[in-house]
Design a protein around this nucleic acid. Structure first.
Lengths: 157, 157
DNA sequence: TTACTTGCAAAAACTTTGCAGGCGC
DNA sequence: GCGCCTGCAAAGTTTTTGCAAGTAA
């Protein structure tokens, strides 16, 4: 199996490839344009998350005329198709990360910002406890973890 | 025990009272001002969450000259003192909710927007699985649930 | 009285909308 | 060539900053 880039800690959880995402976009009836390819390429070079502004900077390496508006519009499409998720933190809620699993949540490195999706979030017991405690009926949830990625832990000794 | 308002589903998880929050603010060395009391009162009238703009509208009932900037600055202080948390959702990340527990997360009604804090989020097993899966060392996490509150479920029959 | 606070105005940051021209198919 | 797509400009939102006047202690 081919390693895509530095950020790929565990191959099976690596960054989704540009071609796969592009195929989904085209399959949904959208055109294969230079600007959209540039955004997808940028997204795959980010280490797991990026703000629209950062995607613009990275994308311009592939397509110098790329505009910020197009980044936003492309992210809308990718979100609609389930190819990206929005990440949230107290530091800001402007980052997007590529999706790699059906029911995915992210763990984010507090040192370098790398975001990796994990699977198997089994919190049924917690949900049941909350329903009993509050009387709510829980329909969906949202979970994010923050810590240190393997690389940053190694660099800290 | 006195019921504070409509939004208090379970007494022990009810809205924190203005006086308690004010005592904490004053104890931290901040002045007891009319504007700050107005924001605290607004916060306790919201049903568990509100945006700065909504707090401004509610707060002006108590202090007509209240300005939006002061709402933001007061929220900063309350956040620093751990008295409010920021809520996040795909719909937007502009809402704040009063804190009622040490390690709190919120469950939010998708119909009326009410937010209630719950305690006892035991996700140690999930954290351990994520650490094994990704190689990250998880330091903190963040969890939010979405569903229907008792009142809205009743209204839907 | 003194220092902290406030509210206005303005700026900054982020996101969306309108539109004429360009590009994919 | 037709119609989707793009990028610029401008507008709309949300949040922060500067500052003179006001208020708590």
């Amino acid at each position: 199996m081919e390693i895509e880039n530095d950020f790929q800690i565990i191959p099976s959880y690596g960054v989704q490839r540009v071609e796969d995402m592009l195929a989904t976009v085209v399959g949904a009836g959208y055109s294969n344009t230079r600007a959209r390819r540039a955004v997808l390429e940028a997204l795959c070079e980010t280490g797991g998350q990026a703000t629209p502004n950062r995607l613009l900077a990275l994308g311009r390496a592939h397509h110098p005329a790329l505009g910020l508006v197009t980044v936003y519009r492309t992210l809308d499409i990718l979100h609609e198709l389930g190819l990206v998720r929005k990440l949230h933190s107290d530091a800001g809620c402007h980052a997007y990360a590529p999706t790699t699993h059906d029911h995915g949540h992210h763990v984010i490195c507090q040192a370098c910002g790398q975001a990796v999706e994990f699977e198997g979030c089994d919190i049924a017991a917690v949900v049941a406890a909350v329903e009993t405690q509050t009387g709510f009926r829980v329909q969906t949830h949202w979970l994010e973890m923050f810590g240190m990625c393997p690389k940053c832990r190694k660099n800290e000794g």
